[in-house]
Design a protein around this nucleic acid. Structure first.
Lengths: 236, 236, 236, 236
DNA sequence: GATGAATGAGAATTCATTCAT
DNA sequence: AATGAATGAATTCTCATTCAT
């Protein structure tokens, strides 16, 4: 967990033990405020990017700037918390899927693909502008970036494992797994809204992505179209 | 072209008449200066993101702030010009490819795919941090976004036309074309450094993308993997 | 009141209820601050004209620039507020006089004249350099100019009414009233320090102005000195 | 004459001896440029006050900034030159009138008044905003202010002389003369356009001013309306 | 002399952060 | 803890003035 913000992390998953553990009202109020602030920050960053001011965010969150600074040491901490919040959610989703795979190994490549596409779609269906902002700042948040990388690697590793099991003859399975996850995640973050939203709803974005992924995982690599020297293939 | 900055656009394609085309020294000096400033801006934004100041940029460009403001009305205009410069380059590349396709229609889907992948890779092989910054600000530059969309649509339309010609039986060719371009462009802009850089260089990014694209264009859509009701395919 | 600056107008007349009227300390502090800033601005503009900087003004007012900008959106707003403050004061004085006239109509032209001269002198006895600055900028503040015009018109109308009552045979009473107010106001704002200060103090400026006004209101218009064609009267 | 600007004063009257004195074309071109620049400056200052920039003025004058600085050392010099130009004109008019008075002494107070009103009206019928700007800056131009004072004093002295001759019994003739000139000049510079322009044209502004002046010069000073202690005359 | 692009000191304005209440 | 007015360093931007051509 990147950094602990007062009065308690508030980001990141926390297993709830059912018996004991009644939170004091004070803690709950704080937790609430942190949530408000992060929601405000999300809205403001989504709307104005880094131009959004801490005062805007406090106003949007319905708290005073002073309160904001009570919980977050500076503006960047807000961004970091937002990123961690997102990663918490994504990690939870991913872990849930991967442990399911461990218990019930998927039986077809199609099932794997469908799961991965679903995971990535669901893990990224919110706040696109914020994601882009964060990624444009990734160099300022090495810890967050590292976490994102780890998460992605974990998914990639499991994906590769199952691919190898189901398609032992597939070439470059590790690279294909990595590639696939990258492609799917990138597409979902796309600046120019993905096809789906611009062409009417008939075949779903997910359908296309699954078709694409499945086809990719079935196709040989290398060059059925042999690589020309000239930059343009049709130049022959 | 969105906005013309003094002393003359300096971005966007410009037909070069080979015989007489001696630009006046004044024009050349200005053009040069605009170029320096944009290079400085690129370096600074690439390094510091929006944090980079106009004074930094001027210094980096080797001119005075005053000169910078002579050519660009404000800091945002720099970003917009950078985006337009990038789009100029991309448009030129795309037009070049598309007119080639019109003269020598590609003969195989593989050739089409290879061309499109090549185009998108080459059009985006520079200044990744800057691209991410720009795309995180896209909402501030509606004209630029519109231009990008148009360019992408143009490529999509041509791609679809040729696909239909070569694979008359392919279902949803328009959507596939759109999908493909979105996927490729997003992947290339990706947040998380593309696979290639993290997996060693052996099979090229382009190889993977071409394989992916080709496979996608050969595969049937719809659900060979029938859609389950439950969120996770492997849950069956 | 042209524009309301936070946290409350602070210029313009305000009815004071004598009993309960405890303003909250917050309001009082803000009001105080606005007053300080305007005083600082007056001093600085009086000393340096438009050359005076907002930083100077803040320093002179004993607040930070940030605070200055908290209350006034820009440098111009300071000037406008100063002008409005002056008009507030003048309006209050004028209204006070005019309502007194309504209750106790003046019994002689001399009394009227004396009142008007007194009003105009007292309404303009502060910050001459500032007044000149403001009037040199009047075209930038159409609202203020309009307000000044209205105020002047109001005085002129009342003056004319009472003149007509006391001197029913006076020709052109409306024009005379307008003329008189213009002449008095201009003289008091005068560029070149008024006579008084350069000729020793014996007969007061006000004495001269009253004599001038009274004489004017007693004299026939038209041409006892018949208008010559030639530009100079003594040219005959 | 305050300061000599290159390439030759260009302000201030210059008697033209008809015989000799053919100016070189170079000198004439310079003279022309200075004139253009001053006209541009007048227009710009009239429109924008001190906000007007030297670049604006050069553009308005149809010359380059460089040329402007060839003839005027800095922005203030423009204002000073403008003021001197105005004073040149006014001085010429005044001298012409006064020498006429010396040769043909005026025979009536009415003639004196008519002459003085005419002089002041004609000497100030241009560029009111510029005059106000200059007067708001008078402290920066002690020489100009001194010149203006001298000119005014000269008129006042002659006026007083002739008044004493024609009305030996008039009290405070010197003060009356000074007062009159101040009042007339101020009125003509008035921010809020003088009556004339707002009430339709029937009795002329000059008629009113002459009536006012004549009446003033005929009236006894002191208090036909005895001065009350209370601030308002009608308060009795 | 003339030009106008270039300069950069300095003015206006912003906004992350603090702190008295 | 909460507040939000106050702060002022940092930034954006202007424009009088210079100087290479």
């Amino acid at each position: 967990m990147s950094k602990a913000y007062l009065p308690s992390p508030a980001t990141r998953t926390r297993v709830r033990r059912p018996g004991r553990s009644r939170r004091s009202p004070v803690q709950d109020r704080s937790r609430q405020k942190v949530a408000w602030i992060l929601e405000g920050a999300t809205r403001v960053f989504e709307r104005d990017g880094l131009r959004g001011t801490t005062n805007d965010i406090a106003k949007e969150a319905g708290v005073s700037v002073g309160t904001l600074y009570e919980y977050f040491p500076d503006k960047f901490a807000l961004l970091e918390a937002l990123a961690n919040q997102h990663l918490d959610r994504a990690t939870e989703m991913a872990n849930s899927l991967l442990s399911r795979w461990n218990q019930n190994p998927p039986r077809t490549t199609g099932a794997i693909v469908s799961d991965v596409v679903g995971l990535i779609l669901r893990a990224n269906d919110d706040h696109p502008a914020c994601h882009r902002l964060l990624s444009s700042l990734s160099s300022s948040f090495p810890e967050v970036t590292q976490r994102a990388r780890s998460l992605q690697d974990s998914v990639v590793r499991h994906l590769a494992t199952h691919l190898k099991r189901l398609q032992p003859s597939l070439d470059s399975p590790d690279q294909r797994a990595a590639m696939l996850v990258t492609v799917l995640a990138s597409t979902v973050h796309s600046t120019i809204p993905p096809v789906e939203l611009r062409c009417g709803p008939s075949p779903r974005l997910s359908t296309h992505l699954e078709a694409l992924a499945s086809a990719y995982l079935a196709a040989p690599l290398g060059s059925p179209t042999p690589k020309p020297r000239t930059p343009l293939a049709s130049d022959r």
